[in-house]
Design a protein around this nucleic acid. Structure first.
Length: 412
DNA sequence: CGAGATTCATGTGAAGTATACCTTTAGGCTTAA
DNA sequence: AAGCCTAAAGGTATACTTCACATGAATCTCGTA
């Protein structure tokens, strides 16, 4: 069943690709609207670029740059700026034959870099050293890392993106070890760039870590609507063929994104998805109503993706939550842990899956809360005990979609 | 009536277990001198 | 005898379980006005 669906998707995709080649796509270069695309110029971030550049520039003289801490809300260009400066710096370094390595690690990726061991393993991987997924003691990885790096005189700048996620999950001990690394090195030098979406993150850190990690700090303020418009216009001009983008479309995208704390990624996604929908409808003009369609799709796509890739037990748990939610008369009234566990057990029985303990389900629910799929809060109901109060605030058609997706992937 | 004790239903931390995987080591086999 | 391969032994990370204790406000209890 699942396989069949996948195949269908694939066929659809292929069809779409063929279609778009035949029907002349409205895109000139769709990559430009993709979020991981690094444009030639980054408007309205000149100041931050100079700051970052001047902080890590000493590496070109073989001096250790200060550790740097970057924070700002999502979609304010942190990752973009860092990657830009990184590639410029690397270009320069290779021209001048300076041994410089800048591994970039995203700490949020589940199953890739969400524990101390895995972050370190990922780091070693980036440096071209194969490390097993399990079996080695963590301190051995540290030794391996030091050995690898310290073999010659060089500078390493480690970029840890979404560092707040990692610390929330596994604590800040690993950061302490990381910042202490440089004292173990003789020839090589190492500095760390931490990137966080959470503005208050730095305050929760252990003071020792805090002081050494944030030798320098840079804040990325949100873009305002005008800046967003500017960014979008520039990209749209290259991404679409002429006369595709309708009147006021850019303005509307920017306005939406500006409302969401100036999230440029959001704005770009809106424009891209709108373009895709237009293309699917085989129209040749992006009009205002397509932005609204895109807006709906983005919200659901993001969550559906996240849900689809969850492990089985997580899916069953979520399904149990949704089921309880659907039975609610008043959609604003909360759901409690005990009920979830009972429904969860039923589903385990139905799907012939081994049933986890309540302890574990409690943790799983907490993880769902962290990833933002649901909204859980620990409350005390006084005489009636203490538990998590769970709410879901997604539109009902999205919930329906998630539900269907889960049922399908669990063969129900 | 109000302060303090009680209570419930689960949160939460620590320690233990199972599993999958890694390195080391010892033994056995092959090979070459 | 040296070199190579294999399997057992001993070790680790991770996901999960078990055990035990912590929480915190609605309710209860009981002394007092």
């Amino acid at each position: 069943m699942v396989k069949k669906r996948g195949q269908n998707n694939q066929n659809n995709n292929i069809d779409q690709i063929f279609d778009s080649f035949i029907n002349q796509t409205i895109f000139r270069n769709k990559l430009i609207l993709q979020t991981n695309y690094t444009p030639e110029t980054i408007p309205h971030r000149e100041k931050q670029i100079t700051q970052v550049a001047s902080i890590i520039a000493p590496s070109l003289r073989m001096e250790k740059p200060s550790n740097l801490f970057i924070y700002g809300l999502t979609g304010t260009g942190k990752t973009l700026v860092i990657n830009y400066v990184k590639s410029e710096l690397l270009k320069r370094a290779s021209k001048q034959k300076i041994p410089l390595l800048i591994p970039y690690i995203n700490c949020k990726l589940r199953k890739v870099a969400d524990t101390e061991y895995r972050i370190l393993a990922e780091l070693l991987n980036k440096l071209g050293e194969k490390v097993p997924a399990t079996g080695l003691p963590t301190d051995k990885l540290y030794h391996k890392f030091i050995e690898l790096i310290d073999s010659k005189k060089q500078i390493i700048i480690i970029i840890l993106d979404e560092i707040d996620q990692a610390v929330k999950k596994i604590g800040d001990d690993f950061l302490y070890s990381f910042t202490r690394l440089s004292s173990e090195l003789n020839k090589a030098q190492i500095s760390i760039i931490g990137i966080s979406n959470d503005l208050k993150f730095i305050d929760v850190l252990d003071p020792r870590v805090k002081s050494s990690l944030s030798e320098e700090e840079i804040l990325f303020p949100p873009y305002n609507a005008l800046q967003l418009q500017d960014i979008l216009k520039k990209r749209a001009k290259e991404a679409f063929k002429p006369k595709i983008v309708g009147e006021g479309v850019i303005e509307k995208c920017s306005a939406y994104a500006a409302r969401e704390h100036g999230d440029a990624r959001r704005a770009l996604d809106l424009l891209r998805i709108a373009g895709e929908v237009v293309e699917r409808d085989s129209k040749n003009k992006i009009t205002l109503e397509y932005i609204d369609k895109a807006k709906e799709r983005i919200e659901s796509d993001k969550i559906l993706m996240a849900v689809e890739t969850q492990p089985k037990q997580f899916q069953i748990t979520l399904l149990a939550i949704l089921n309880l939610y659907k039975k609610l008369k008043d959609k604003n009234s909360p759901i409690f842990t005990g009920d979830i566990y009972n429904v969860y057990r039923d589903f385990c029985h139905k799907t012939k899956t081994e049933c986890l303990t309540q302890r574990r389900i409690s943790d799983i629910i907490a993880e769902f809360d962290m990833s933002g799929v649901i909204n859980a809060r620990v409350i005390s109901k006084g005489r009636y005990g203490r538990c998590r109060e769970i709410r879901i605030d997604h539109p009902s058609n999205l919930i329906e979609k998630i539900n269907r997706l889960l049922m399908e992937s669990l063969n129900l």
